[in-house]
């Protein structure tokens, strides 16, 4: 078994706004091995970005509060680190790519300076060397080095995302958190960016958390997948587990809502209803109000995470029964 790089244990993050508590991330457990890519899938508002910012230690406080849990990176709990120690880790060991490349770059700094900034923070190099390295990074993501002196508004969306990737990878981090890196891009550019990330990941041996709601991206990139719903991980396993044996009703719902080219399908099958209000999560299973297999028991208590196989876990009693029936029969 390969080495664990990041382990999240019972992480709970809430936002407290005017006596209301937004339960953004609840009791999340995750584990990523070196060189692996974990796909974090879920609807908008499922707490994916909060989880990512939690790992980075950049949850704004107030209103955000990490109430419980551990984030163990290379054997050390990040939540126990002080500000200075976290600053040394951010950008060097863990870095992050943000959702929207249009707004992720500082409009009044040249892209070269923005890449050089992270290099100067973590490597003891002269300004000149940092600038040269920034140009190298630009070349690496496929942008001519002489464009380093240009400003973000002179780049297209796809190129801006490349610059963001160059910033994130400039110090060759151990772990890269990519928060929907392709959502804001059009499909042809998405492909290029994903290929680029995959290649760089292989070159640098970086592990990755890839946040997305696109199963196509997951299939392309990820070894492991965690399905998030209303702040919880409801199903977790290898990509094969999830794609072939995904059994949580929510996971199933997500797959069923994808359009299929093989069948004649006049309408998509959406998951009916909306995600629960994160300030008032239900007592029972969070998915119960939308679940076609919901029982009275589901409304009263949350199911526990159950190991189906060595790699596959799910948080739903119905799914566990169903999975066992299927595997017994098969």
């Amino acid at each position: 078994m390969s080495e664990t790089i990041l382990e999240i244990k019972n992480l709970t993050i809430h936002y407290v706004v005017d006596k209301e508590t937004v339960e953004a991330v609840n009791n999340v457990n995750l584990q990523i091995n070196k060189g692996e890519t974990l796909g974090l899938v879920g609807e908008t508002g499922a707490g994916k970005t909060t989880l990512a910012k939690g790992i980075m230690g950049i949850i704004p406080n107030p209103p955000g509060k990490i109430l419980n849990g551990e984030i163990i990176f290379e054997g050390e709990n990040l939540l126990k680190k002080n500000k200075k120690e976290m600053q040394a880790i951010r950008g060097e060991k863990i870095s992050m790519i943000f959702q929207d490349p249009m707004t992720a770059l500082n409009p009044v700094m040249t892209v070269g300076d923005q890449i050089a900034e992270v290099i100067r923070l973590h490597e003891h190099v002269s300004p000149k060397e940092a600038t040269d390295k920034a140009k190298e990074m630009l070349e690496m993501v496929g942008i001519p080095g002489q464009r380093a002196s240009e400003y973000p508004h002179q780049f297209s969306g796809g190129m801006k995302q490349r610059v963001v990737i160059a910033i994130a990878l400039a110090c060759r981090p151990e772990l890269l958190i990519a928060d929907e890196p392709t959502t804001a891009l059009d499909v042809t550019i998405q492909m290029q960016v994903l290929d680029l990330m995959n290649n760089l990941k292989k070159q640098l041996g970086t592990s990755m958390v890839l946040i997305t709601h696109d199963f196509g991206v997951v299939a392309e990139m990820c070894e492991k997948v965690a399905i998030m719903y209303a702040g919880e991980v409801v199903e977790y396993g290898t990509a094969r587990d999830i794609f072939n044996h995904g059994c949580h009703p929510y996971t199933r719902g997500l797959f069923e809502s994808l359009p299929s080219l093989n069948e004649d399908q006049p309408r998509l099958k959406p998951i009916v209803g909306l995600m629960p209000d994160p300030t008032q999560l239900p007592v029972g299973c969070n998915f119960a109000p939308r679940c076609p297999y919901c029982t009275d028991a589901c409304k009263e208590r949350k199911s526990d995470m159950v190991n189906l196989t060595e790699t596959h876990q799910v948080k739903c009693d119905y799914a566990v029964r169903k999975f066992r029936e299927e595997t017994d029969n098969g």
Partner: peptide
């Protein structure tokens, strides 16, 4: 978002406010 980007680089909060935020 670019303020978060600067934070993600491990930049000091003071520098973020003066160099990234105030200039904008």
């Amino acid at each position: 978002d670019y303020i978060d980007t600067a934070r993600a680089k491990g930049q000091d909060e003071m520098v973020i406010i003066l160099r990234h935020a105030l200039r904008n």
